[in-house]
Simulated scan of single mutants.
Amino acid sequence: MARLTCRYLLKCVKLFVLFGLVNGLFIMGYKVYFEVKYRTVQYPCDLKTHNREIVKKSMLQAGNASRSHNVQEQCKPFQSRIKMSKLRKTFKSQMPLFVNENYTLWSNVAEYPLPFGVQSYESEIDDLLKVVKETAYPKELLRPGCKKCVVVGSGGILAGSGMGLEIDSYDVVMRVNGGPTRCFEKDVGTKTTMRISYPEGAPQEPGEYDPSELFVLVPFKSKDLEWLERVATGRTVSWIGYWRPRIANSVPIPRSHFRILNPEIVGHTAFDLVKFPLNKGRKYKNVPTMGTICIMAAMTVCDEVAVAGFGYNPNDPDSRVHYYEDMKMDTAFVLSTHDIHGEKQFLKDMVKYGIIKDLTGGIMW
């Protein structure tokens, strides 16, 4: 009887292991299929013959004076931060933008783990700061005077918008994740002051990086810190351990141009401003989208903040999620790990009270 029971249990264990392997292979196969079908940039031009300088010249020649007028209006110092403080009394306007050697002295940064803080990751961050040593702001933010910034998302609303010239005329251009500019200059502009992203969201094409831009990592897990160390030192990267089967293997900018976003900005945005649940610091439907994280990063250093390429129309399931790929809205909402509806109301309030200016008008949909 005991032998029969042991044999039965052994068979059950084997079946369980086999099921796990099959299920794992199925999930991996679907991820690869999804990446190829939906996550491939659809360039509308030939990259081999594309000349950005010629495109920029034609954009300037065909420039619409009325569009540039909005940007040339007199900048109002601290406007976005003053209005944000009225909407949310808990808003912190003095947080450092990047992690630096003094990060352990900051008030709430050790209260939560990544991406909301640095709890249990201090030694890894210390090691990374020995490689990524520079923590200074870009020169556009260091110059005196009032600064206007635009945060450029990847929303499908940018397709055919002709917003490129207006985007480029802002003092600081912050781009979210891997939204490409090559072949899309007329709609999204050519200028990039800093790109804020993570390994799975960063551009996979080396040609998408401008040598003068800053790359700002938003770390969600330990592998992200490892990834930054590897790309900053020119070492190879394996996709194993990441959320997607394809990640950026190279970020061809000087090592001095890499930064780490202050995780306190993510935690403050999630828990104090958007009012997501704490979940004891666990990541589940309480992580802001990269777009909102970038907006709040801009709020800490810019006097006026505008956005472009934000907002989705949930009532149109066939509309494109991004301006550069074929994924539709119905697919995005099924796959989303964010509380998109809860976050959207927060962004609507920011537009309503004049905290941010929505250049493409998608947030109020």
Rank of each mutant, 00 (worst) to 15 (best):
M1P: 01
A2Y: 10
L10M: 08
V13P: 01
L18E: 00
G20R: 01
G24K: 00
L25F: 02
E35P: 02
K37P: 02
Q42C: 03
D46E: 10
K48S: 05
T49R: 04
H50I: 08
K57R: 14
H69P: 06
L87V: 06
P96G: 02
P96W: 00
S107Y: 01
F116M: 02
G117D: 04
E124C: 09
E124Q: 14
L129E: 03
K130I: 06
E140T: 07
R143V: 11
P144Q: 04
K147Y: 05
G153V: 06
G155R: 04
D171E: 03
R175E: 12
V188H: 13
T190Q: 05
M194G: 12
Y198V: 03
V216I: 11
L217M: 15
V218K: 05
F220H: 11
D224G: 09
R230T: 09
P245K: 07
P245T: 06
S250L: 13
S250F: 08
I260K: 04
G267Y: 12
K283G: 08
K285L: 15
I295E: 00
A298P: 02
V305P: 00
V305Y: 00
N313Y: 03
N313G: 01
D316T: 11
V321G: 07
D326P: 08
M327Q: 09
D330A: 06
I340T: 10
I355Y: 07
D358Q: 03
G361P: 07
